[in-house]
């Protein structure tokens, strides 16, 4: 189980994160605009996130933080 969070005010809506998600659950928001005036990236189905942090890896603006449940 992974938790993905976006620092939305830093997002420039470049969309690179959306091109690398293996689960296709990261996309640019269609209806929201952030303080910079961009459509920010968001996760549409957090339950499907596998915590691979591909999105974070390609994000040029350090918008994304990923947490994973620690192994027992």
């Amino acid at each position: 189980m992974a938790k993905i969070s976006f620092r939305e005010d830093r997002c420039k809506g470049c969309g690179l994160c959306t091109t690398v998600c293996p689960k296709k659950i990261v996309q640019l928001s269609r209806d929201r605009i952030n303080s910079k005036g961009y459509h920010p990236a968001e996760c549409i189905d957090e339950s499907a996130c596998i915590g691979c942090f591909s999105c974070g890896t390609i994000c040029p603006d350090c918008v994304i933080t990923i947490e994973r449940e620690a192994a027992k």
Partner: peptide
């Protein structure tokens, strides 16, 4: 317990 596996590095 959740572990942060990806975040902004400190030196940035």
């Amino acid at each position: 317990m959740a572990n942060t596996v990806f975040q902004k590095p400190h030196a940035l």
